[in-house]
Structures are given as C-alpha cells and as structure tokens.
Design a binder for these strands. Structure first.
Lengths: 72, 72
DNA sequence: TAAAAATGCAAAGTTAACTATACATTTTTC
DNA sequence: GAAAAATGTATAGTTAACTTTGCATTTTTA
C-alpha cells in the first residue's frame, strides 16, 4: 500500500528517526513502511496520521483496495 | 482497541458471516476483532469502514492511544 | 573538507493478525 | 417446538508487522 509519509516528512523537515521516536517504533519500521515493504498496523497508522494532524485516509492510499470493493 | 463493528452490524442487521465474506476474512476474524481479542490490520479496517460507508476513525476508537499523543 | 546526521538496505528473530476447524449454546424462523 | 441460522469460544498453525543489529553510502553542517 502506498502512503505519503516520506513526502510529509520532507515537507516538514522531519527525519525518519524523529518520526520513529514520536510514534514509538524503530527507524527501520518507518523506512520499511515508506518504501512499501509492508503495511503499517492500524495503531501505527493512526499515530503517524495524528502526528501530522491528518486522518489515516489522508496519509495512506487505499485505492489499490477499491477493486475488491467494486467486486462486491 | 474498541470498535463499533458489532453495533453497526446490528443496526443494519448484518451477520458476522456476511460481513466476513464482504471484507474477505473468516467469521472468526470478525468475532475476534469485535471482542477486542486483537486489532484489525489497516487494510481490513479500511474494508470494514468502507463496507459501512464510514471512515476508519468513525468505526475504530483510538481514544486509548491519545495518552501517548499527549505525552509527546 | 572533515565530522555528524540522515538514509539505504539486509538478515535473523519475535509477536500479533489471521486462517482453519470444530463444537456448544443461543437466537431466529417456519 | 423443531430446524436453521447466528453467535461464542477455543486451539493449533501460518503469515506479516515490527524489532534488533549492523554496516555502507549520502547529505548536511560547522
């Protein structure tokens, strides 16, 4: 799943380490999620969105799941 | 983490099985999430919220995480 | 331009989300 | 009131999120 984390970090000049500490995970976790190696948990997604004062839907891109929705 | 899934299901008279099928998980997964045995993944949270035409934040209760937010 | 900070990336280990199966109890429907 | 549907709960197994460690490269700062 795609997300805007790297983009939001750069806009606000926040390093991976600072974000990682703020949301209580390791830098490696932030990196992995940024590059799409895996998807954030719901709690982490919320913490990240909240850190940027955005909703989860504004940070994470669910458009690749819409297909399944339309298949219902 | 708390959520409004059982409540939303009952309002709309949708069984666990029907919801499970609609969001591509087993009934056991829905049950476990409803009773708080574990937290939904981000993708599943999105699918469930979307099924009810709500945002993730409207279905899942993150208030137990606010503490951490305020500690920043 | 050297030092410090930030990023990239990789691998092994742990934990939590989810599946599959199964059976007992409760609720709904006919 | 019997059958069918829905729910509760439990357990063993798989997969994916996340940690930990470590080191190499790039970018920033003094």
């Amino acid at each position: 799943m795609k997300n805007r984390i790297a983009e939001l970090r750069k806009e606000r000049k926040i390093s991976q380490s600072v974000l990682a500490d703020a949301v209580f995970v390791t830098r490696q976790t932030i990196t992995s999620i940024e590059v799409g190696k895996y998807t954030a948990s719901l709690e982490l997604a919320y913490r990240i969105a909240n850190y940027f004062n955005l909703s989860i839907e504004e940070v994470f891109d669910f458009s690749d799941l819409e297909v399944l929705k339309n298949e219902r």
